[in-house]
C-alpha cells in the first residue's frame, strides 16, 4: 500500500508513559511533552524483510529449540491477521514473538526465577504475514510469572509480539493474553492501558474451529497497525 501519512496515534488509547502502578515506568517516562512531527519519508518508509530471512522452523517454537524431544506443556497454535485501521490486510509484516516456558521461566542470562528451564524450549519465533495478512505460530502455552513490582505480583500468561508494518511509524511491540485468565485484571502492566475495551483487544479467544484434534488447541490473535491516508488531497511528496 503506497500512500500518505499515517493516521495519528490515539495516545489516550495506548498506555501513558508514566504509570506509578508499574514501578519501573516512574523513572523511565519522559516528563516533557512529545513533539508532534508530520510524517516525512523517514517515518513513511520502513525496513522490508523478505521470506529468505526465515528458516523452516522459525514459526514453530515446539520444534525450533528441541534437542531430544518436544517441550513440556500445553500445545497451542496462535494465529490471526495483521490489519490496518481500515481493516485492510498488511502483508509482508515481520512478526517476532518471545515467551516463557510452561512453568513461567524465561531462557535469558539475567533470569533467576526458580522454575526450571525446559531443555527443549527456547521461547523465540518469527514469521512474515501472508498476502491476506495471516500468520501462525505453533508453541507451548506460557505459564504465569512472578515479578518484583508489588510484593506479590504475577504476570498473566502472555506472549510478547513485535511487529514491523510498512512504515517505521507503525512499529509496535505489545503482549497477547489468553481468554479467561483471572490474572489479567490484576496485572499492573495490563492496567497501564486506560480503557477496558483496549485491554480486551489484547486477549486472544480460544478458537475451537482451528484446534487440531488430539494435537493442539488454537488461539486467535488479530493485530491492528496504524492506517494510512490516501494521497489524493495531500501535498505531493517530493518526487511523487
Amino acid at each position: 500500500m503506497s500512500g500518505g501519512s499515517f493516521y495519528q496515534r490515539d495516545r489516550r488509547w495506548h498506555p501513558p508513559a508514566y504509570d506509578p502502578g508499574y514501578k519501573t515506568s516512574v523513572t523511565r517516562s519522559p516528563q516533557k511533552a512529545l513533539i508532534a512531527l508530520d510524517n516525512t519519508l523517514s517515518e513513511l518508509t520502513g525496513p522490508v524483510f523478505g521470506h529468505d530471512l526465515l528458516g523452516p522452523l522459525d514459526d514453530d517454537l515446539i520444534a525450533n529449540f528441541a534437542k531430544d524431544g518436544d517441550p513440556i506443556g500445553q500445545r497451542i497454535i496462535v494465529h490471526g491477521r495483521v490489519l490496518d485501521e481500515d481493516g485492510r490486510p498488511v502483508p509482508g509484516a515481520l512478526i517476532e514473538v518471545w515467551q516463557a516456558n510452561a512453568g513461567g521461566r524465561y531462557r535469558h542470562k539475567k533470569e533467576t526465577y526458580l522454575a526450571p528451564l525446559d531443555p527443549n524450549f527456547g521461547g523465540c519465533g518469527r514469521t512474515i504475514s501472508a498476502e491476506d495478512g495471516s500468520y501462525r505460530f505453533r508453541t507451548i502455552k506460557p505459564g504465569p510469572y512472578p515479578w518484583p513490582n508489588g510484593p506479590n505480583d504475577w504476570r498473566p500468561a502472555h506472549i510478547h509480539f513485535s511487529i514491523f508494518g510498512h512504515g517505521f511509524a507503525q512499529r509496535l511491540i505489545t503482549q497477547m493474553y489468553f481468554e479467561g485468565d483471572p490474572l489479567i485484571w490484576m496485572c499492573p502492566i495490563v492496567a497501564t492501558i486506560p480503557d477496558k475495551a483496549a485491554v480486551e483487544r489484547l486477549i486472544a479467544p480460544l478458537d475451537m474451529a482451528n484446534t487440531v484434534p488430539m494435537d493442539a488447541r488454537a488461539y486467535k490473535f488479530d493485530i491492528v497497525l496504524r492506517g494510512r491516508r490516501s494521497t489524493l488531497f495531500e501535498n505531493r511528496m517530493e518526487g511523487n
Binding site: 496515534r9 490515539d10 488509547w13 495506548h14 498506555p15 508499574y22 515506568s25 529449540f65 490489519l83 490496518d84 485501521e85 481500515d86 481493516g87 517476532e96 514473538v97 518471545w98 524465561y106 531462557r107 535469558h108 542470562k109 539475567k110 533470569e111 527456547g122 521461547g123 523465540c124 519465533g125 518469527r126 510478547h160 513485535s162 509496535l172 511491540i173 505489545t174 503482549q175 502492566i189 495490563v190 497501564t192 492501558i193 483496549a198 485491554v199 483487544r201 489484547l202 493485530i223 491492528v224 497497525l225 496504524r226 492506517g227
Partner: peptide, 26 residues
C-alpha cells in the same frame, strides 16, 4: 467503521529473547 490500533505494551526485561536471541543466550 474504523478499527483501533492494537495498544502497546512494554517490551519487558527479556525483549532480547525475541529480538536478539543469540545475544540473550538462546
Amino acid at each position: 467503521n474504523r478499527l483501533k490500533e492494537s495498544p502497546s505494551q512494554t517490551a519487558g526485561p527479556y525483549v532480547h529473547i525475541g529480538c536478539t536471541p543469540n545475544f540473550s543466550g538462546v
